[in-house]
Design a protein around this nucleic acid. Structure first.
Lengths: 327, 327
DNA sequence: CTGTTAGCGCCTTCAA
DNA sequence: TTGAAGGCGCTAACAG
């Protein structure tokens, strides 16, 4: 910037004004400075700029479980777009479902002065964020509500979606409906389990604990759980996969066994239509977009109380859930 | 940091030493400072740190086409892991296949002083990076080689993979083999087209231009191209989909028409096994890992000439390519 | 082993 | 409309 000032024969401050498009610089001077900037191929140092300003770093942070999971990459892309629209960048971090890693990531991001944070929280107390939040770094929780912190969140109607799904299976005549899902410690899993139970209760079907297989941490786990279900003395005639990872696992297991079992998954996915898999659908990108919108509203000073936004889901019936219960 | 220094009764510099785990501080002093840090919940300001150091910002940039595309999200996750292992963060940007956006993203990242850049380049001259590269910001190109810049790249054996794929289809008796792919301006597409042609030439099959449908920019485009192929007076009996997006499009079209056409896709995908889709396979994460490894080697001062690393592919034959040619 | 001084590149504040 | 001085929070370079 010094070089530019010298080249244009003006002061440092004038260059700064031009670079930031501040008003109050004569047209002719702007020209001269712009020319110098172009000639010298000058580019503002955002690090120095951020240090001085204290207000914005033109970056936001996103902490998710795994960027390679299509659900999260869709969310990340939506958040990236929102950031980009504000001339700002997105820093992502995958927590791998580890609370420690998550804290560490958040700490790193805060140390980089991100303007705000979108977090898919692990089931721990997030009170440690209070101070930074109060100091002006907004936090919006995505997919799961925060614990120990009063903050905005953008969630799905997990319970309603699961309930609709299982009710649909019941309507097809199924009475032994399996559930394959993540650890019950996750809020989403717990909610979807509740929906499953509500649907069963409504139909007067007693719950069989053998049919509920939670605890998946990877696709392979869901595959194994499904095999266990199929090996049961009286196996389920339908399976509800509580999310996209579990659905893939169930699909693999059913395919490998050529098992004729009805299937319904939570989370739509690209090839679900081709595969004919019925799903509880919603738009993952919308979650990201809503979270980012809320975050930026806070960045801009919105001071209303923290709120939950709940996104509705939609049951999409395809072939897989129309498999009739076997005698 | 000032507060910590006061609290611990030492100088600023000593706190800095402790924070950065520099040697040459008495154990007892470290203790005292650490305690003060914890009590005050102090966290180093990475922005200020980066400004002063000039050497590292503990961040790298990744410019890809679309973070929501599973191929890229797998790459991004691998790069993120590599960054994380170096206590550093990843800033991603999606160029959407726009050269302008790509330049803008690169500029933004450079302005943030990233330690290095991994770029999936649009087909334009990247000479504009020369200066920054020479000034010490390494750049590694991924998936496509650079033009106008002598820099490292990590690529796939696109031609060999495509050739093996098409040869396999030929071996099944197919002589009318369609190709559905991205715009020919992309290096990967051009290479895969070359492989397709080599395989045909080798089999003495003249190329029918009607069967080559390039130019897809989205899944829907590939779907339409496939429909056009199927509507041809003498349609192909097999289709080679030149990447994952195109493969999804072809799958959709074939499914909708219940067309019995052999299919083979470049890029493996999660449900390919369940769907029985034959593919040219490789590990997208390996691309990211190799690129990141090379980038960090450069960050660490590696001064050998720029090189290309080419990853091999592997043909995985499943059901879809074993469909016999129709009379 | 510890501290002092200077300055990274920019923007805020204030003055001209 | 422009400029000069000061300082953001930290670390390099040099003392002690």
């Amino acid at each position: 910037m010094n070089d530019v000032a010298r080249e244009a024969g003006v002061s440092l401050k004038t260059v700064s004004r031009v670079v930031n498009a501040e008003p109050g610089v004569r047209e002719e001077t702007v020209e001269r400075v712009s020319t110098a900037i172009r000639r010298l191929r000058y580019r503002r140092d955002d690090i120095a700029s951020t240090l001085r300003r204290r207000t914005t770093s033109a970056s936001i942070g996103l902490v998710i479980e795994d960027l390679a999971n299509p659900f999260y990459s869709l969310v990340a892309r939506a958040v990236e777009d929102a950031a980009s629209a504000r001339q700002s960048v997105l820093i992502t971090g995958s927590s791998e479902g580890s609370a420690d890693l998550e804290r560490q990531l958040i700490d790193t991001l805060l140390g980089r002065r991100v303007d705000g944070l979108i977090v898919v929280p692990e089931p721990i107390d997030h009170g440690f964020l209070t101070r930074d939040r109060d100091a002006g770094t907004p936090v919006v929780f995505l997919d799961r509500p925060p614990v120990g912190l009063d903050a905005d969140s953008v969630l799905l109607d997990n319970r309603g979606g699961a309930r609709a799904a299982v009710s649909h299976l019941v309507a097809q005549g199924h009475r032994r409906i399996g559930l394959v899902g993540d650890p019950a410690s996750l809020w989403t899993t717990a909610e979807r389990l509740s929906g499953y139970r509500e649907a069963l209760a409504e139909a007067g079907i007693p719950e069989d604990p053998d049919l509920v297989r939670l605890g998946s941490r990877a696709v392979g786990d869901a595959e194994r759980s499904t095999e266990e279900l199929l090996a049961l003395p009286s196996p389920p005639t339908a399976i509800f996969a509580a999310n996209n990872r579990n659905c893939v696992g169930v699909l693999r297991a059913l395919d490998a066994r050529r098992a004729s079992v009805a299937l319904l998954g939570f989370d739509d996915f690209e090839l679900a239509e081709v595969l004919g898999v019925s799903v509880v659908s919603y738009d993952p990108a919308a979650l990201g977009t809503l979270a980012a919108r809320r975050l930026y509203a806070r960045v801009d000073g919105l001071a209303v109380p923290a709120a939950q936004q709940v996104l509705a889901t939609r049951l999409i019936v395809r072939r897989s859930s129309l498999v009739a219960p076997r005698a």
